[in-house]
Simulated assay, not measured.
Amino acid sequence: MDRYARWNALLELLTNSGRVTVEDAAERLGVSQATIRRDFDQLAQQQMITRTRGGAVANGVSYDLPLRYKTAKHSAEKQRIGAAAAALVAPGMVVALNGGTTTTEVARALAVRPELAGTPDGAQLTVVTNALNIANELLVRSRMKIVVTGGVVRPQSFELIGPLAGGILRDVTLDIALLGADAIDVVLGPAAHNEGEAAMNNLMVARARQVVIIADSSKLGERAFARICPIERVDILVTDAGASDDTVASFEAAGIRVIRV
């Protein structure tokens, strides 16, 4: 288990129990106590946890981890979700992508589809994104037209947010918005931990003909701080096979097409 995977596991333990000792964490993760102490010290330096004598306590009930720490979590599911979401895209479309590990997988799946780079009649895929890492993924691996919004970079997600970021989105028309979310509730809709990211996502929703929320099953039925849009605005939910039949049925009853992979 690499460092980022350990940190994810430690933060999940703290989310569930609120407190964990060095001994218990070492036993659960199968590593030495010295390794756990170093992990706790590093997480505390980043203000993700609070160190205590012999262990650590959680700083809050949920964590907005930096993107680089999320990549090991549900990776296989996210790759399948990414491929399924990318399959919804046709040549010539204008597509919006926000930031996140799952939408990064969407971008990678789009990049390996040569027919999206251009057709005989000149129909080229256009991707509008506020995520610098996704723009880079597509720029170096494809010949699509890439449009990047302005704004201030949020280091945790590599997303551009703030008042400067909205200008471009208000002046474009999108065929489809493929949006990752930190949580999606069948009543409250999709949401993000950060209000700036949610505001950018909301602008994408407003300009899109079709809205697709991309979320692994661990995020279904959950809530986060800032709502992206009402549930009525969501057309399709792409998730993984871990989503229960009851959960899927509740979203379908709300008028949402659910793709489970």
Score class of each variant (00 low, 15 high):
G242T: 07
E197G: 04
Q79T: 14
N201A: 15
A183W: 01
L203D: 08
T101E: 05
L65M: 14
F158R: 05
I228C: 04
I36K: 01
W7V: 00
E23T: 14
G100I: 02
F225G: 04
A83K: 13
R38W: 01
T173V: 14
R37K: 13
L125G: 03
Q156S: 14
S142P: 02
E137M: 03
G196N: 04
V128R: 02
Q210N: 10
V112N: 05
P230V: 08
A165K: 00
I259G: 04
N194I: 07
H193Y: 13
V258H: 05
R108N: 08
A58Y: 02
V127A: 04
D185Y: 01
V147E: 10
L132A: 14
G255T: 09
L139K: 09
V187E: 14
E137Y: 07
S32T: 15
A34C: 05
N130P: 02
G255W: 05
A56R: 01
I231A: 07
L220Q: 03
S75F: 11
Q45W: 04
M204H: 03
G82H: 01
V238Q: 02
V205K: 04
A165Q: 02
R207L: 09
A5C: 08
T102E: 08
Q42F: 01
A224D: 07
T71G: 10
M1N: 10
S17K: 15
N202G: 15
L65D: 08
R233F: 00
I168C: 10
Q79D: 12
G54N: 08
M1F: 11
T35P: 03
G151Y: 12
K73S: 15
V186C: 11
R154C: 00
L125A: 06
R51K: 15
I36R: 00
P190R: 05
A241W: 06
A86F: 00
R143F: 14
S218A: 12
L88W: 03
R38S: 11
I146E: 00
H193V: 08
G60H: 11
R154F: 09
L160I: 02
Y63Q: 04
S32I: 07
T35H: 01
P155S: 03
M204W: 00
R80Q: 13
A117N: 13
E197V: 15
R28F: 06
L13I: 13
A165N: 02
I184Q: 01
Q79M: 12
L203Y: 01
A34K: 14
V89R: 02
A85Y: 00
V186D: 12
E195M: 12
R141P: 02
L164C: 06
V234R: 01
V89G: 02
T126Y: 03
S157C: 06
D2C: 06
R233V: 05
R227N: 13
